[in-house]
Design a protein around this nucleic acid. Structure first.
Lengths: 209, 209
DNA sequence: AAAAACATCACATCAAGATGTGAATAATTG
DNA sequence: CAATTATTCACATCTTGATGTGATGTTTTT
């Protein structure tokens, strides 16, 4: 069928050629473009004879624009393409930055050509694949292991909650049936414990909980 | 090595026996327990001669407690076990409920025994695997489709950003090279546009963006 | 070109928040 | 039992924030 039109953006020429060659030989894949930078790629796809890819293998570390920055640029021209990140980095920041920018898969460069191929066919048919280690990190993002037990006492929590709801100290006092000064004392105590010194930081802290 | 100790919790007897038999024959897997409900499983593992599993295949639809409820119960006794959800359902709610509860993988029941086996070895070695369709849904959770364009001008955004960073009006003015009064004017304008009237609400608004 | 929107600044006033010092009572913990 | 922690309150001071009124210059849009 060859309904997969693949582009490769990779600065390491050896890797690039290896990918090109391997996937160019697959019956179900048509290689459209192969570039060493996102900038080059953007030029290529704007030529009128260009065939737009529906799957892109994109390296993260690239000369010029990084792969992560590249995602949004590419999406401006090919909004529905499936971008697979191919990288040596497995640090959380990069993974989530890429996924948030719109990548659909994230593969370690250790992956075999066969599993990259699996990934390509998978994303072309609307699925997604991640390397095991990366999948684990993505999943851990959901598990609230961050059981940062709230170090505040019940009373302190009531006060913080009221503050976050937008009440002034005076209103908090009225609501909890205590004096303005007591509210202030509590707030000071809370600031000390959380190492902060303004209502703004308190609200940020509370919203992150 | 047989460092994988596997438990199966599945109410469909045919499926259960098929899993038991298939994985029981693998050299690297020791079957520890096989139950038709979470309740039964919890009784089993509390017998003193019981071997605790480090990987559990857990069905979602079960008599009594559901698999999702079961996750947290099981984790109380075996906190570090790797739970693989095995299910016919691919609806977002169940997927995220399971992942949030602490499942590390989520497989469709359509999966072949071979790929379930891959999954088991993958999670046992600290990775994770999801069926392609499920992986896609998980990933889509990261892409902010909610393009809530923020109605503020560039300057206003700079000011809000500085405020959220915890700067006082004076410090914002210094940072942006404008006077305290100018900052105030901007803030008032922002409050009008966002229909709010305090710094706290502004911070909440900004953090929701 | 006129209107609207954006960005800048000043002066004034009142409300609210931040911070220090000091202290009393009740409950909890070592 | 003694020490600590949680909760309460008061007084004082200074900084910051909220809000109004008024004004000037620059873009951008109509």
């Amino acid at each position: 069928m060859s309904n997969i039109r693949l582009a490769v953006i990779e600065d390491d020429n050896i890797v690039k050629i290896s990918l090109e060659t391997f996937f160019g030989m697959k019956d179900d894949i048509t290689m459209t473009t192969s570039c060493i930078s996102v900038e080059d790629f953007l030029v290529e796809i704007q030529k009128k004879e260009a065939t737009l890819p529906n799957v892109i293998l994109l390296d993260i570390q690239l000369p010029g624009m990084t792969g992560i920055e590249g995602i949004s640029e590419i999406k401006k021209y090919i909004p529905h393409c499936n971008i697979i990140m191919l990288t040596t980095f497995e640090d959380n920041e990069k993974i989530f930055a890429a996924l948030c920018a719109g990548a659909v898969s994230y593969l370690s460069k250790q992956s075999s050509l066969a599993s990259i191929y699996d990934c390509i066919t998978t994303v072309a048919s609307g699925g997604s694949y991640m390397s095991p280690g990366i999948a684990r990190k993505v999943i851990q993002h959901f598990t609230p292991t961050t059981k940062t037990i709230n170090p505040l006492t019940t009373r302190q929590q009531e006060i913080v909650s009221a503050i976050v709801d937008g009440l002034s100290y005076k209103m908090v006092g009225d609501k909890l049936g205590i004096s303005l000064d007591t509210v202030r004392t509590h707030i000071m105590q809370i600031y000390r414990e959380l190492n902060i010194n303004s209502k703004g930081e308190l609200i940020k802290w509370a919203l992150k909980q």
